[in-house]
Structures are given as structure tokens and as C-alpha cells.
Write a protein that binds this DNA or RNA. Structure first.
Lengths: 340, 340
DNA sequence: GGAGTTTTTGGGAGCGCTCTCATACTATAG
DNA sequence: CTATAGTATGAGAGCGCTCCCAAAAACTCC
């Protein structure tokens, strides 16, 4: 039988209340008593029952992490694993636990509220990348603190943590333009995903800034997978681009395959830039220039923000946007390489 | 304020007990009463408090999934995401929830028991791939039902679900031998991971069966990453193998890169077989022959096994070993291609 | 139509904890 | 050495639920 506070109390010659105080670090306990209780606690490796504690205290120190399934990239790129990693470590560090929910697309309201309002969670982090996610709706109605990973255009009055997709995409494309490329194509992400939209927007901004037209034949939509990138690239080939900005590394890898098959050399004939900086990006031939997202950091930041909101409730919304960094490798070439 | 059973009881003109019966599907409730309660329940979208339920009932319908961090492959190959997926869907289907723990290597006993014995979990699934994982130790001492993903040689008297690594590796190597290859090399996984050990063993068995010697210069250890595969392959090159069995697709991809760089053609000069069937395996050049693991299935099976043990406690240990399937693609060539 | 049987219902106890409040004990000052 | 403030401790209630048992209601059947 698991031990209870009462057992510890009996063993240390004190009361349930005192043991509870010791466990929770209440300082209204005489030093000698505390030590006596501590000894028993440690020798028996006592763990308070979280269900009971949650019930009595009204909070559980458990956070929910909701990840929408049905986003095809879940298994192909390391974004979600990294995110989970970041969230999990940050929780460990703050003495919280994580409850993971992979939200299958067919979940309806009922299931969603079951997740949120079962009293086991103090707050939720939702990694929703879809513009129209029913989960976000359900969340808005509730009274549970939450933080989004990835901004949601339809709910700007909501807390979120995001990477500056538009800005860093713009930088990536500007880099290509600075190298002298003029027919810069892009392989976008799905346009029902915020990341996909924002990265395309960054591409457009960069071209517009330099007074270049946005040609429809230089824009193809991918789905963040290698295969999607390959297909999109084959389509773009007809427009004879001299550079390609792919909205994800997996798509860039697919594009690279299509380019190689078409007998084009990267970077001599076509410059290529990806997005994400997945581990494989450094090992493609040639190594891929890409935008490094602080994915783990984003997860950790979401946790910190959420915990802060749980412990200090405030109606203020907060938006944290992290910068991303361009990792210049060989796939985009150098202006030297181009002109000499 | 969240609703309670008592609220629902008042609203439907009945008692707490009856509402509880309705929620839990106890059939000792008159049909008309049930309907009355159901209406209220649904119109208010009532969710029973799981902490309270757990406390009262002594179980929570929450399973823990423990994944050891510090295994470098967590982020590079889709094994863990797939596993999480399988576990999560199976839990959803059985009306259980998953609590995810990424166990950081520096976790000590104290943290571990905090995970296990906090009363929030009805059982745990541990995806421990390491031969000497302290978590397994801690688990053995406790009274919490658990199932391992991946057998553990040091604790055979423990429930586990695993894929038949040895057998399927043997099949893969036999396939290479059947194609007429005679200098079959292998890039193994880390030898402190069970999968790494078993796959090497399968390789050895196949060679031995065909009366071939196991040459040390044809065996190189990798770490399941692309880079590891690349390095191992460069080392193996000196021994002039005519085929390579890599213990993971990521390593096979690295090997492919090394082979290509060395001017060797796959499959004409060297046949290549991987393990895992990650999505990218179908899109390498040439497409990779590989062993497809039923990873999701394994996760689901672990859940089913665990739930069964929770609901019908038994001291019997059970070992479920799933077969894997060889996906023959072009990287291994055909005997026709070799002889004509 | 009443005894016996079965089905349905409500109330009480209690899961293990936290929190509040009253009490007991200790220290300081008058 | 008592009054006063402060500190330490224990008892009680209660969080929202399940489980058990007894009471009530609804059926049987002679």
C-alpha cells in the first residue's frame, strides 16, 4: 500500500498537518521537527499522491501539451520532437509535469473539453499550426490558462510564442538577392498553416522591397514533406529559376533531388535555401543554407509563459516572437562563386 | 466554477450517486432517469473531475510513457514520433490518457519515483533502448504495472513488446547473400542499445548460416545517425565490401553519401540495405531497401498489453515480438542485374 | 392485496491531501 | 512572574468523486 501523510506523521511522531508543511516548505515548522520528518520522508522515499493534492489544492502542477495530428510533417521533420523536448525540459525544471495529447483530426468538441476541463491540467500549450483549428475555439471559451505555439491570425488577442517566420524568410530571400539571383522561386508550405503563410509573406516582402515582381510561375505550394518539395520543384523548373527558397528543409531536400535529376547544379545553376535547420541539412550535397529556428527555446518559453500566467493570473495577452538565424552553407553559393 | 456531480444531480432532480451511475454506465438506472440525467449532462458538457475520481476510485486511466532522452536518435529519426503516435491513438481508443516523460539522463532515483508513484498513473510504458537503464531498475522494485518497448536482456522476466530485430536483420542479410553478395559489411547501432545488439546478431547469424566468416573489418559501429553512418562507411570502404547492411535508415543514408563520394555505384558496385523504413527511405537515389518496423503497432500493442495488465492483474510476464517486413527497393539490386 | 422479490435510488463514509482556525507552546517584555 | 506577542502544532472540514449499504419503489405471484 502506498504511504500517506498520516503514516509519515505516525512514524515521525507528529501530525499530518506538520508533515504537509514540511513537504510544501512552509517555514512555520521548528527546525528539529522538520529534520525529524525529513529523515522519515527520505528513508521511505515518500511521494505525495498528486490526485489528492490536486483535489485539495485545486491545482496539479501538470501542463497539457496538445499537438494536432493530421499535420503530415509530424513524423518527417524534427520540429515536433524538438518542441516536445523543449517543453518537457522546461517543465522538469519548474517541477511541473507534461501531459501529451495528440489531437486526432476527428476529435470533436466533446473530446476536446474532456482534455481541457477534467481538472487534471493547470494549463495547456497548443501547438496549433492550422489557421482554423477547432481546438483554439474550444480554448477561447474556457477558463483554462493557455499559450499557443505559433500565432493564430484569427485570434490575435491570445497569448502565443512564435518564431519570426516572415522576417527570417525575408532575410533568407534578401540573401539570395544579394548574391545576384534575380529569378528567385519559392516552395511554400500549406497555406492553411500559419508558418506556410508567413514564410511566403516574407518571400514576397523581400522581392517587393527590391522592386522585383512576384511571378505566380515562381511560386509553388508544397506540404512540408520531401515528396511535396520534389513535386513543387519539378513544376517550378519550367520557369527556370536561378534560386529557390523552400519553406522547410525537407522540401528543400526534395527540391535538391528534383534539381539534381534535372541535371542542374546547386549552387552553380540554382541557389537553394531551406528553413528549419534540421540535422540532415548540414549533410546534404551540397550542405544546405537554411534558417535555424529556436524550436526548443520556443517550447521552453511557452512553458515559462504559461506557468507565469497560471501563478499570476492576468488578462493581458502576450506575444513572444523569437528571431531565427540564417545558417549560410554551400547550397546558396557566394557572389564570388557566381561572378568569377 | 466547474460543475460537480451534485450540481448535475440538483438540476436533474436526482442524487449524486445516480449521476455517477449514469456517467459510469452502471445499468442499475431506470431508463427515464438515465435520459433525464443525460440531457443535463450533455447540455452542460459536464466533465467529471479526474483528480477526484482518481482519488476515490484508486485509478486514473492515465498511462505514463517514458522516453529516455540522451538517445541521439530521438530527433533525427521518426521512430519516437511514430511510437508516441501509436501509444497516443491506442490510449484515445481505450479512453485512457497519456502522460509523457522525457527522462533526462541525469534523473536520479528520486525523480524517477516521483514519476512513478505519484498516484496519477495507472501504469507505465518505458521505451528504454539502453541495456543498463536505471529506470528499469526503479520499475522493478515498484508495484506499478509496466510494459517495456524493446526487450531488456538484463531483465527477461519483464513484460515487453519488441520487433524481431535479430530475425529481420537476418532476413535482410540473407537477401543480400541470395543476390550473390559475398563481402557483406554491416554498420551496427550502438552496442549499449538493444536494437543495436540484436541487429548485429541477426547479421552474424545469417553469415554463419551460410558458412561465411564474420570479418571484423566488415563491421563498423555507428550511432544511428546519418553522420555516424557516413563515418562508419568510410571506414568500411577500406575492406572493399560488395554489400552493406546498415542497422538504421539514417545510417544507410550516411553510408550512401560516403559510397557516392567514393565513386561507387549503388547497387551496381555495392548493395545497400537499411532498417526502419523511414519516409525518406523511399526517396533516396536509389530508393533504399529496408526493413519496415511496425512502430506504431508496437506502441499500440504496448498500450493494450498494459491496460490488460492493469485491469486484470497477473504475475505472468508476457513477451510480444512482432515480425518486420523487408521492403525491397532498388538499393540492393537484383541477382538478374548482377549476373546479366 | 399482501408477502416476497427485484430493481432503483439516496446517503454516508472515505480516498489523501490542503487550508483554516483554534490551541499549545515559546519567547519577550513589563 | 504574569501579560503579550509570536511561533509551532494538531484537529476539522472539505475538495469531487466512488463504493457500499440500506431504504424506497416497482414488480411478482399466489
Amino acid at each position: 500500500m502506498p504511504l500517506t501523510l498520516e503514516d509519515i506523521a505516525a512514524l515521525s511522531g507528529t501530525s499530518r498537518s506538520t508533515v504537509s508543511r514540511v513537504i510544501n516548505g512552509d517555514h512555520a515548522v521548528r527546525e528539529t521537527t522538520r529534520e525529524r520528518v525529513m529523515t522519515v520522508l527520505q528513508s521511505l522515499n515518500f511521494q505525495p499522491n498528486l490526485a489528492a493534492r490536486g483535489l485539495a489544492a485545486g491545482h496539479t502542477r501538470v501542463l497539457g501539451l496538445v499537438i494536432p495530428m493530421g499535420v503530415s510533417t509530424i513524423f518527417t521533420d524534427p520540429f515536433f520532437p524538438m518542441l516536445i523536448q523543449g517543453v518537457s525540459s522546461a517543465c522538469n525544471a519548474c517541477d511541473y509535469s507534461v501531459m501529451l495529447w495528440l489531437a486526432e483530426p476527428e476529435f470533436e468538441r466533446r473530446t476536446i473539453s474532456k482534455i481541457f476541463y477534467n481538472g487534471l491540467l493547470d494549463g495547456v500549450i497548443v501547438a496549433s499550426m492550422l489557421t482554423d483549428d477547432p481546438i483554439i475555439e474550444a480554448l477561447g471559451e474556457g477558463r483554462l490558462p493557455f499559450v499557443l505555439i505559433g500565432r493564430n491570425p484569427s485570434r490575435e488577442q491570445t497569448c502565443y510564442v512564435d518564431v519570426d517566420n516572415a522576417q527570417s524568410s525575408r532575410q533568407a530571400v534578401l540573401h539570395l538577392l544579394r548574391l545576384g539571383r534575380r529569378r528567385v522561386a519559392t516552395i511554400t508550405g500549406p497555406q492553411n498553416m500559419i508558418g506556410g503563410i508567413d514564410r511566403l509573406q516574407g518571400y514576397q516582402t523581400a522581392l517587393r522591397e527590391r522592386g522585383l515582381p512576384i511571378l505566380p510561375e515562381l511560386v509553388a505550394e508544397g506540404d512540408f514533406t520531401e515528396m511535396g518539395g520534389y513535386i513543387a520543384m519539378r513544376q517550378l523548373l519550367r520557369a527556370r529559376p536561378d534560386a529557390v527558397f523552400a519553406a522547410s528543409d525537407m522540401m528543400a531536400i526534395g527540391a535538391l533531388r528534383a534539381l539534381t535529376e534535372a541535371g542542374l547544379r546547386v549552387p552553380q545553376d540554382v541557389s537553394l535555401v531551406g528553413f528549419d535547420d534540421i540535422p540532415a541539412a548540414a549533410h546534404t550535397a551540397p550542405p544546405l543554407t537554411t534558417v535555424r529556428q529556436p524550436t526548443q527555446r520556443m517550447g521552453a518559453l511557452a512553458v515559462e509563459t504559461l506557468i507565469d500566467r497560471i501563478e499570476n493570473p492576468t488578462p493581458e495577452v502576450c506575444h513572444l516572437v523569437l528571431p531565427a538565424e540564417l545558417m549560410v552553407r554551400e547550397s546558396c553559393g557566394t557572389s564570388l562563386g557566381l561572378f568569377h
